[in-house]
Nucleic acid binder design. Structure first.
Lengths: 239, 239
DNA sequence: GTCTATAGCGAGATAGAC
DNA sequence: GTCTATCTCGCTATAGAC
């Protein structure tokens, strides 16, 4: 079940180290590296300040590349934003889906307990966030921001996540066949909201709780969240 | 328990209809009205696009006043933002606290059931959101945005809400005296996250659920949320 | 493939006329 | 109390030199 979601450098799809004889290989590898640097910087800054709170100059500066390169590689600002969401979104969704399938096979032909479905939704994130590089945490904070935005949530989150969430909605419904779709999706909504706030990692819970909790302690957040959400589902959806 | 949180025009503290003889009264009343118009416009636009996604010109335009007036009344952009948060924050927090006190008195000397504490946290919002004017909904969407922002959440939400949330944290702890502060606050975190996503009103749950749910249907959201969260608290905090 | 230079625009803030 | 006019700054995007 250790679905590989993390890797030191989030593997840029097909690196192709020798991309056509001569000295072109060297240059292309360097380009790929720079693309990743730009994405890393954009990811972090967008997560902190939102789409409009960041300039291409800041991104280029933090990435250590020239401003013009951001446009050269990614086109307009909005397409860079989309590229950031896409990069890790694909990896994450694949890992979540694998985890869900594994849980369902384990208990087939019965549906798995709701805890297992929730875990399949969360566990790949946990693994990703424990990596030493900050990329996944930045990505998650960006998702938190986008998910709670009336304008970005609709167009961007839906584009990258609807297909996956429907799979999980169906799986949850199989756990509680007598529940209505309305009950299932409002319960999912509760899970999604709590998860988003965890991603945001605002540091607020730290001083609210007088340091009993730390907002970067995702492990504790999930340890609480899984039984909490499972109990909520059972209460509302029966079973 | 019908703590008055809503009112057609969210009563600007002390309107003082005759503010010093002559014709000055007329002018002052007009100023107050314009201040409210600016706050209303800022509230809506900040909620949709965030602090950096909105210009003072857009705000003034939507409010139907001159750009220069925004600076004249509220100073720099950031202070306008803060004024927006403050206006309804005070009213809301007072109503929540009243509801909490009422619930505690009802069951004294025992602590009230956790449902009642959660209700005291949510109910004033429900009342506010059912008003015909869109102001409270915009305010809530803005809170959702700010609450999930690593940079604004820390400085702005803490400033306006920490005192109140601590009161609720204490009340929750009295419901589960054997639980640790860590458990209580991670559970509160789950509630806060789900509530934020509800506030955001992104319309996403609508097509995720194929219209089984509507994101503007706060009533249904709360009807699910209260038993869901209560069950979660009991599971994690015991009792 | 990379970077310099700049076009073209619109922002926040304010001085001073009315 | 209000608004016109403007100052100064920084943005995105791109054309063209290297």
């Amino acid at each position: 079940m250790t679905t590989a979601v993390a890797g030191k450098k989030t593997a840029g799809a097909g690196k192709s180290p020798s991309a056509k004889g001569k000295g072109g290989a060297r240059v292309t590898a360097r380009s790929q590296e720079r693309r990743e640097l730009i994405l890393d910087a954009a990811e972090e800054l967008f997560a902190l300040h939102g789409f409009d709170g960041v300039t291409l100059r800041q991104i280029a500066n933090q990435a250590g590349v020239d401003v013009a390169l951001t446009s050269y590689y990614f086109g307009p600002k909005l397409e860079l934003f989309d590229a950031v969401l896409q990069r890790r979104g694909e990896i994450l969704n694949r890992a979540r889906l694998d985890a869900l399938r594994a849980a369902e096979e384990e208990f087939a032909p019965e549906p798995p307990p709701i805890e297992k479905v929730i875990e399949a939704f969360l566990r790949p994130l946990e693994i990703a966030q424990e990596t030493e590089d900050r990329g996944w945490r930045n990505y998650c904070a960006l998702i938190a921001y986008v998910n709670n935005s009336p304008v970005w949530g609709e167009k961007m989150i839906s584009k990258h996540f609807d297909k996956l969430v429907r799979e999980f909605g169906d799986a949850m419904h199989r756990c509680f066949p007598k529940a209505s779709a309305k009950q299932i999706y409002w319960c999912y909504h509760n899970l999604s909201g709590a998860l988003s706030l965890t991603f945001a990692d605002t540091g607020r819970i730290d001083h609210l709780s007088r340091n009993a909790c730390q907002s970067h302690d995702f492990q504790s957040a999930y340890d609480c969240m899984i039984p909490f959400m499972a109990a909520g589902f059972r209460e509302v959806c029966g079973g």
